[in-house]
């Protein structure tokens, strides 16, 4: 068991990191920390893909010359698809992070807090205030 873990230490690290990221994304109350958790989780997946995609002793998937000839034997190169997936994943993760941060900014403008539960609490308090005022006004009208 331990041997296998040591053999696949990159993958093991990726799994542990993505676990940490997911836990942070789910359990942190502060939204900035949540977003950092999301980034840790995404980066762990890229580590996993990069580790899976690399075969020791092979070259990056870019054609190179040897003795005046292009080396076209596919066994010399690693698979380019995992790198492509990582690139796509990075683009997605950057845009999602930007969007999440923008929404967090709006939340802070509206509630003055970065904690989503506190925001809910403040909103219900505001609603109760409004309801109290409305019922007060109704009583005044009746009187």
């Amino acid at each position: 068991m331990l041997e296998k873990l040591l053999l696949n230490h990159y993958e093991a690290a990726a799994v542990i990191l993505s676990g940490i990221g997911l836990t942070n994304l789910l359990l942190q109350r502060n939204l900035i920390k949540k977003i950092i958790g999301l980034n840790i989780m995404d980066t762990a997946v890229y580590l996993f893909l990069a580790a899976k995609g690399y075969v020791a002793g092979r070259a990056a998937p870019i054609l190179f010359e040897e003795g005046g000839k292009w080396v076209t034997n596919p066994d010399v190169y690693v698979n380019p698809v995992p790198a492509g997936l990582v690139l796509t994943g990075i683009v997605v993760s950057v845009s999602v992070t930007a969007f999440a941060l923008a929404l967090t900014l709006r939340l802070y403008e509206h509630y003055g807090t970065l904690n989503i539960d506190e925001a809910l609490l403040k909103m219900t308090e505001q609603q109760e205030d409004i309801e109290a005022k409305v019922s007060q006004a109704e009583e005044d009208v009746l009187a």
Partner: peptide, 30 residues
């Protein structure tokens, strides 16, 4: 204020979901 809070909550849950989907797709690709 209410929609921003709802959207953030939706976003966080969605990101958990798509994160799991991504991990799974990478495992399946492997």
């Amino acid at each position: 204020a209410e929609t921003v809070r709802a959207a953030l909550r939706y976003l966080v849950m969605s990101l958990v979901g798509s994160g799991l989907v991504m991990i799974s797709i990478c495992l399946l690709y492997g």
